[in-house]
């Protein structure tokens, strides 16, 4: 069942399928399945950057920790890795809450401006990411890791797809919808959106901005780790692979617009489709490069994001 293989971690590790017979429909469906899972992980960074205003460069390491959590759980119990969400999510929530309280709050308190805070928090979380990599290498080793779960075919429009991708997509859609509803239908969710929109006015309506930011940061970490659990069901990863996901999430958040949940979801699908198209039509090795071309185009042409307004 468990395979540990050294090899390039490919985003579209299609294995038994032949690239030449892939139809355009294939690209669209695989792209959408991938994008759906990306949406969840990017929602995590969106909460951390859009609400708590912390660009967390250790975000991807939290995702990989979630993936290791699922792997370890599956190895031990042979039960569905989805069950690992029950402990991965609360652990990631607690860990990220502690990170915000211990590491970030002192930076917030001493920073004179948002720009200064951004530089400080980027440096601090960049350092933190290496700390996490070190811990994970010590705990799980440095080799590529994957496991085989639900790797049986499911047919959509007559084409075969991995059932694990479909299940992962479905779980991601459910979690994204739950998060969206929580943000839009509850008082606590409204408070987080208020902090995202106007932190100084949030204090005037009795929102404790530090506490709300800690909640957003912790929740963001929990959501990202949940994304890691789902991605681990079909991707190969290793302890130092987090930076790739940090940067993917960053691309999605910037492309979708900071603070814009709907933009994030659309941007996640755009990235999923673009990566799949490039991997299929050109070369799987170019997926990351393609993502960066997309990122640079956004920064040059629409720095405010797909749906964002130009700041006057």
């Amino acid at each position: 069942m468990i395979t540990k293989a050294a090899g390039t971690p490919a985003i579209c590790s299609s294995g038994n399928r032949n690239r030449s017979i892939k139809s355009d429909m294939d690209i669209v469906i695989i792209g959408l399945l991938l994008g759906g899972t990306y949406a969840l992980m990017a929602m995590g960074l969106q909460l951390q950057y859009g609400v708590a205003r912390i660009m967390n460069l250790a975000n991807g390491e939290v995702l990989i920790a979630g993936a290791f959590g699922a792997f370890w759980f599956f190895l031990g119990t042979k039960a569905s890795p989805l069950w690992s969400l029950l402990f991965v999510v609360p652990c990631a929530f607690g860990l990220n809450w502690a990170i915000y309280r211990v590491l970030i709050v002192p930076l917030v308190r001493r920073s004179k401006s948002q720009g200064k805070l951004e530089v400080d928090s980027i440096l601090a979380t960049f350092g933190l990411s290496f700390f996490f990599i070190g811990i994970m290498v010590a705990a799980f080793g440095a080799q590529y890791t994957d496991y085989s779960y639900l790797s049986e075919p499911v047919f959509i429009f007559g084409q075969r797809y991995g059932l694990n991708r479909v299940v992962s997509f479905g779980a991601s859609v459910i979690l994204c919808a739950a998060l969206y509803l929580w943000l839009h239908k509850t008082r606590a969710g409204l408070a987080l959106r208020a902090v995202s929109v106007n932190p100084s006015a949030a204090g005037l309506v009795s929102i404790n901005v530090i506490n709300a930011s800690a909640l957003a940061f912790a929740l963001g970490g929990a959501v990202t780790a949940a994304g890691g659990v789902l991605l681990s069901m079909y991707l190969t990863f290793d302890a130092s692979y987090g930076v790739v996901f940090t940067l993917k999430a960053l691309i999605i958040v910037i492309l979708g617009g900071v603070g814009d949940i709907r933009g994030t979801i659309v941007a996640a699908f755009v990235l999923g489709l673009a990566e799949t198209a490039v991997a299929t039509l050109i070369d799987p090795g170019l997926t990351l490069a393609a993502a960066y071309v997309l990122f640079m185009l956004v920064l040059l042409v629409r720095p405010q994001g797909l749906f964002g307004r130009r700041v006057a």
Partner: peptide, 27 residues
């Protein structure tokens, strides 16, 4: 004590109703 600052202190990207609900956020 409720302040309406010079820049109005409103949440421009939220709806009227959401702004008013936020006003009732204090316990």
């Amino acid at each position: 004590v409720a302040l309406v600052p010079e820049d109005r202190g409103i949440f421009a990207d939220l709806t009227v109703q959401e702004n008013l609900f936020l006003g009732a956020h204090p316990a």
